[in-house]
Nucleic acid binder design. Structure first.
Lengths: 189, 189
DNA sequence: TGCATATGAGACAAGAATGTCTCACACGAC
DNA sequence: GTCGTGTGAGACATTCTTGTCTCATATGCA
């Protein structure tokens, strides 16, 4: 019967479709989500009890991908600067989903956010702190702010690409270039 | 009878209250908006035909404050770097409202966004372009991206301050410091 | 072929938010 | 005092979304 396998595959496909749709239209209906996934609303409800459950599943997916990206980026290897570059590269695939979840968290106050985000925040902030302690990064910008700025730049870049204001191929360089180097021109690159 | 005067005062007060509330809870109800403004839902409906009208009025207010900030910042005076610093300072008061409108624009696709934003985008992008042409800013980051990044950093900083992750007093330095200088430590500040 | 399971389509009620309406009341002007 | 105007409170219908339900159908396995 291959219960778990079939279920898992469908579930993942639905989640991907939902993420792609909600990234563009955060207020999409359950009916629209179902149509986007190519299934009926009834089936969508059978897999996710309700809209909340769907969003929470997306959140879990986002956290999972984030932590996978954090692992793959090997934040403790090499210089902090190199680690940041790797991290942005690893997170690029999930940028749309993360942008959606980022605003979703701002949108609905309270309810206490998922502990997973706190774990991720800690790891990213630790990377920036490591860069400060090694002398790579300036110390007048707190790790918390650099972490927040990374999220914000990723979301902005994701939207800008979606709306065609910037080119998708520049995604990585735009974020890393600005986050690390800033807009000012320097003598020695 | 002082028609216009009284109406204008109330209208402005309602808009300010709505902006303050919607900044924290973007999905607030018309009833909540009315309560926040200290008026009844009926009166709110008399001033703004509906939720759309309210949001569009807030958008007009945001555009107005943005353009006022652009004027006050005298973008053509002095170095581009100084102009950016002045601009961020002038926009700080409106940061919450602008963060709300920024996400609102991402949230509801299509419907064609207000032309005012295009005018503002042009002016901000022109500032970054001026900085590039004068040799102050690096040229591998497009003015369009720098503009988008400014919005994203302002929104991120606004949320981070609201949620207490960073201090409000650091707002200006966080944005300007990162946008212009980036995270990397430099030999000559 | 026969059976089980998952799905799609649609009906249905419940809830929330909106927009419109009426009515009573307070306030200021005359 | 009286009138006109704006306001608050609340009722009401409407709309949209959601969540649950039933039933017919297709797909896969024995």
């Amino acid at each position: 019967m291959q219960y778990s396998c079939l279920m898992a595959v469908d579930r993942d496909h639905v989640l991907r479709s939902a993420a792609a749709l909600l990234t563009r239209k955060a207020t999409a209906t359950m009916d629209e989500v179902a149509k986007a996934a190519g299934i009926s609303r009834a089936t969508l409800h059978r897999q996710f009890a309700g809209r909340d459950a769907l969003v929470r599943a997306l959140e879990a997916l986002g956290i999972e991908e984030c932590e996978a990206a954090l692992d793959a980026a090997r934040l403790d290897d090499g210089t902090a600067q190199e680690a940041v570059r790797r991290l942005v590269g690893e997170l690029e695939r999930s940028a749309g989903l993360l942008a959606f979840l980022y605003t979703e968290n701002q949108l609905f106050e309270g309810d206490g956010q998922h502990e997973g985000w706190a774990r991720i925040d800690v790891r990213v902030a630790a990377l920036f702190r490591r860069g400060q302690e090694s002398g790579e990064f300036r110390i007048d910008l707190s790790p918390a702010w650099l972490t927040e700025a990374l999220y914000g730049l990723m979301a902005s870049a994701s939207w800008a690409v979606t709306e065609g204001r910037v080119a998708a191929k520049d995604y990585h360089h735009m974020i890393v270039g600005l986050l690390l180097g800033g807009a000012l021109r320097r003598e020695e690159p």
